[in-house]
Measured scan of single mutants.
Amino acid sequence: QVATSTVRILGMTCQSCVKSIEDRISNLKGIISMKVSLEQGSATVKYVPSVVCLQQVCHQIGDMGFEASIAE
């Protein structure tokens, strides 16, 4: 089973930030795809909930120095 959710990301300033986040999160087990939008300050994450949760994704992004939260 696959889920798609949006994560809000604060602190991104350039495409390099976007690429860094996409590269790191895409390597997590259970992540199918991730598309980060600098303009919208968010990311669309396609993932397998039984393998990885959005809290883990937000935590990983937080470790990179950005502020991440699950969009309502």
Rank of each mutant, 00 (worst) to 15 (best):
Q1A: 09
Q1W: 12
Q1R: 08
Q1M: 06
Q1T: 12
Q1H: 12
Q1F: 07
Q1Y: 11
Q1L: 07
V2M: 09
V2E: 08
A3G: 04
A3E: 12
A3C: 15
A3H: 12
A3L: 11
T4C: 15
T4Y: 09
T4E: 10
T4I: 13
T4P: 02
T4F: 09
T4V: 12
S5E: 09
S5P: 04
S5C: 15
S5A: 15
S5W: 06
S5Q: 08
S5R: 12
T6W: 12
T6M: 14
T6N: 09
V7A: 01
V7D: 04
V7C: 14
V7R: 00
V7Q: 00
R8Y: 14
R8D: 09
R8I: 14
R8L: 10
I9E: 02
L10D: 09
L10V: 13
L10C: 06
L10F: 15
G11V: 05
G11S: 04
G11M: 05
G11C: 05
M12V: 03
M12N: 00
M12W: 04
M12T: 01
M12I: 05
M12S: 00
M12P: 00
T13H: 14
T13C: 05
T13V: 13
C14A: 03
C14T: 06
C14D: 06
Q15N: 10
Q15A: 11
Q15V: 10
Q15W: 09
Q15Y: 13
S16N: 12
S16G: 08
S16A: 13
C17E: 14
C17T: 04
C17S: 04
C17Q: 15
V18P: 11
V18I: 05
V18A: 15
K19W: 09
K19M: 09
K19Y: 08
K19C: 04
K19H: 10
K19A: 08
S20H: 07
S20P: 03
S20G: 05
S20E: 15
S20M: 15
S20D: 14
I21A: 02
I21W: 04
I21G: 02
I21P: 03
E22D: 01
E22R: 04
D23Q: 11
D23F: 09
D23C: 06
D23A: 13
D23T: 11
D23R: 13
R24W: 05
R24L: 06
R24E: 11
R24G: 10
R24Q: 12
R24P: 01
I25C: 05
I25Q: 00
I25N: 01
I25S: 01
S26I: 10
S26T: 11
S26M: 13
S26D: 02
N27D: 11
N27M: 13
N27V: 12
N27L: 11
N27H: 11
N27S: 14
N27A: 13
L28N: 03
L28K: 02
L28W: 06
K29L: 12
K29E: 12
K29C: 07
G30C: 07
G30E: 01
I31Y: 02
I31N: 00
I31F: 03
I31V: 14
I31G: 00
I32G: 00
I32N: 01
I32W: 05
I32A: 00
I32F: 05
I32D: 00
I32L: 11
S33D: 08
S33G: 06
S33L: 08
S33M: 08
S33V: 04
S33P: 00
S33T: 07
M34Y: 04
M34K: 00
M34V: 15
M34L: 10
K35P: 00
K35F: 08
K35S: 09
K35E: 08
K35Q: 10
V36C: 08
V36M: 03
V36H: 00
V36D: 00
V36R: 00
V36G: 01
S37W: 08
S37F: 13
S37E: 06
S37V: 06
S37P: 00
S37A: 06
S37C: 09
L38V: 03
E39P: 08
E39F: 12
E39W: 08
Q40I: 08
Q40A: 13
Q40H: 15
Q40D: 08
G41L: 10
G41Y: 07
G41I: 05
G41A: 14
G41T: 06
G41W: 07
G41V: 04
S42Q: 11
S42H: 09
S42M: 15
S42N: 12
S42K: 14
S42Y: 10
A43M: 07
A43K: 01
A43D: 05
A43F: 05
A43W: 04
A43H: 03
A43T: 01
T44C: 13
T44Q: 09
T44V: 13
T44P: 02
T44A: 10
V45L: 12
V45W: 03
V45K: 02
V45Q: 02
V45M: 06
K46E: 11
K46F: 08
K46R: 08
K46I: 15
K46C: 12
Y47M: 01
Y47Q: 01
Y47G: 01
Y47W: 08
Y47N: 01
Y47L: 03
Y47V: 02
Y47H: 02
Y47C: 04
Y47S: 00
V48E: 10
V48Q: 13
V48H: 15
V48S: 12
V48K: 10
V48G: 02
V48N: 14
P49H: 07
P49K: 07
P49A: 07
P49N: 05
P49R: 09
P49L: 06
S50F: 08
S50E: 11
S50H: 10
S50N: 08
V51K: 07
V51M: 14
V51R: 06
V51T: 05
V52L: 10
V52E: 01
V52I: 14
V52Y: 02
V52K: 03
V52H: 02
C53W: 08
C53L: 10
C53P: 10
C53T: 15
L54A: 04
L54N: 01
L54G: 01
L54W: 05
Q55L: 13
Q55F: 08
Q56N: 11
Q56E: 15
Q56A: 12
Q56G: 04
Q56I: 09
Q56S: 09
Q56R: 09
V57W: 04
V57S: 01
C58S: 09
C58T: 12
C58K: 12
C58Q: 10
C58V: 15
H59V: 14
H59G: 13
Q60W: 12
Q60P: 02
Q60K: 09
Q60H: 09
Q60N: 09
Q60L: 15
I61D: 03
I61W: 03
I61Y: 04
I61G: 04
G62C: 11
G62Y: 12
G62M: 15
G62T: 15
D63F: 10
D63R: 15
D63N: 12
D63T: 14
D63A: 14
M64E: 01
M64T: 01
M64G: 00
M64I: 07
M64V: 04
G65H: 03
G65K: 01
G65M: 04
G65Y: 05
G65P: 01
F66W: 05
F66M: 03
E67V: 10
E67W: 12
E67Y: 12
E67C: 06
E67I: 14
E67A: 12
E67N: 11
A68R: 01
A68E: 02
A68T: 09
A68S: 06
A68P: 05
S69G: 06
S69H: 10
S69M: 12
S69D: 06
S69P: 02
I70H: 06
I70F: 08
I70S: 08
I70K: 03
I70W: 07
I70C: 14
A71T: 10
A71V: 14
A71L: 15
A71Y: 13
A71K: 09
E72S: 12
E72R: 06
E72K: 07
E72P: 09
